Computed example of a mutant assay.
Amino acid sequence: MSAPTVTRADIQQLLASTGEDPVLYLKAGPDNEGGPLEVDVWVSAYVSHARVLVHRHEVVDAIGDAPDDDDVDEYLSELEQTVEDVAAALA
């Protein structure tokens, strides 16, 4: 499966999440029942560890909880390899 692109909006959605230990993860299609990989945010307790890209607390540690666009863009470039690795493992 090809890896999707993580966007600023995805990082902002993760940072805005009020759930307990939210994560950015890959799901297979809109309902996670098959299809192209997509990026989504959910509570880590309900997401398979193998699908997790990053926990909210990791993003906050790296760029803070109110980063500017430049900080987010830099973080996205660092996250690219993780996205590729997780997508490859799910193939």
Rank of each mutant, 00 (worst) to 15 (best):
A89W: 08
G35H: 07
D31M: 07
A28I: 01
Q13S: 15
D40W: 01
L26I: 03
T18F: 02
M1E: 09
V47E: 00
G19T: 03
V72A: 08
Q81I: 02
L53G: 02
R51F: 05
G19I: 02
E20K: 12
A9C: 00
V41Q: 01
D61T: 09
D70P: 01
Q12D: 12
R56K: 15
A45D: 14
D10T: 04
T7E: 14
A28E: 14
V59P: 05
R8Q: 13
L15R: 11
Y25F: 15
D40H: 05
G34A: 09
H55G: 01
H57S: 13
V83F: 11
D73F: 03
E80L: 06
L90W: 07
D61Q: 10
H57L: 07
A66H: 12
E80W: 04
V39P: 00
G34T: 05
V86P: 00
E84H: 14
L37Q: 01
P22G: 05
L24P: 00
T5V: 13
Y25M: 00
D21M: 13
A62L: 13
T5K: 14
P22K: 06
V6Y: 03
L90T: 01
L53C: 06
M1H: 11
P4H: 06
A89M: 04
V72D: 07
S77A: 13
L90D: 01
S17W: 05
A88R: 15
G19F: 06
Y25I: 02
R51M: 06
D68I: 03
A3N: 09
R8L: 06
A87H: 12
L26C: 02
A62F: 01
E20D: 13
